[in-house]
Amino acid sequence: MKLFITGIGTEIGKTVCSAILVQYFKADYWKPVQSGDLHYTDTNKIETWTDNTFCHPETHRLQLAASPHQSARAENIEIHLDDFQLPETENTLIVEGAGGLMVPLSDNTFMIDLIEKLKVPAALVVRNYLGCINHTLLSIMALKQRNISLEYLIFNGNFPEDTERVISTFITKETKIIKIPEIERSDKEHITITAKQLTITKL
């Protein structure tokens, strides 16, 4: 199985959710583009938070903590979709994107284009905030328009029942739902406990 972890925005917990799924599936991990935080990347976090995970090297490691197209421009680099090839592995592979679906890799290519190019199903991470319903439904619509399979919808944290219900009515029966509770700290102990208790359900 190969799975692309994306989200409805930035800073909603994609890396924590990726770590939990890596631990749950005993999967490999790949971050195609790392923008900023090169001293402690998302790959470093996965290595710290999970057990003996094989992490494939990033295709692009960019200094500036910004949108990939801006970070690349600061280094006189242009990101092309042809730069990216899925790592070869016989193991399950968790791929983590940067930000949401419409984060630009260049002036005319976006994260959703990379998912389409790699031909892998998506897992959409949702976090509760004012406006999350709008952002979630727009993201689901965008995936449908590109015929990208939404394998998992991940509710990260606590949600009002009304919010969860209306989002859940917008997905197909093929999409599985994962609910990840709030965790006290992002560390190996809490990631491992959460992975052991993880449940995957269908509508």
Rank of each mutant, 00 (worst) to 15 (best):
Glu11Asp: 15
Ala19Trp: 02
Ile20Arg: 06
Val22Lys: 06
Val22Asn: 09
Asp28Phe: 03
Lys31Thr: 04
Tyr40Met: 10
Thr41Pro: 00
Asp42Glu: 02
Thr43Cys: 04
Thr43Trp: 02
Ile46Trp: 02
Ile46Leu: 07
Ile46Asn: 00
Trp49Ser: 05
Trp49Leu: 15
Asp51Ala: 12
Phe54Asn: 12
Pro57Arg: 10
Arg61His: 05
Leu62Asn: 10
Leu62Met: 10
Ser67Thr: 12
Pro68Cys: 11
Arg73Ala: 15
Asn76Phe: 06
Ile77Gly: 01
Leu81Ala: 10
Phe84Cys: 07
Gln85Trp: 00
Gln85His: 13
Leu86Gln: 09
Asn91Ser: 13
Asn91His: 13
Ile94His: 03
Ala98Lys: 07
Gly99Pro: 06
Met102Thr: 03
Thr109Ser: 14
Phe110Met: 03
Met111His: 01
Ile112Ala: 10
Ile112Asn: 01
Asp113Cys: 09
Glu116Val: 00
Ala123Phe: 10
Arg127Met: 10
Asn128Met: 07
Asn128Asp: 15
Asn128Gly: 01
Gly131Trp: 14
His135Met: 09
Thr136Cys: 04
Thr136Val: 09
Leu138Gln: 07
Lys144Leu: 00
Asn147Thr: 11
Glu151Thr: 13
Asn158Glu: 14
Asp162Arg: 07
Glu164Pro: 01
Val166Gln: 12
Ile167Pro: 04
Phe170Lys: 12
Phe170Ile: 02
Glu174Leu: 12
Thr175Ile: 09
Lys179Asp: 13
Glu184Asp: 14
Lys188Val: 07
Lys188Asn: 08
Glu189Tyr: 12
Thr194Leu: 09
Ala195Thr: 11
Lys196Phe: 06
Leu198Asn: 03
Thr199Cys: 10
Thr201Val: 11
Leu203Tyr: 12
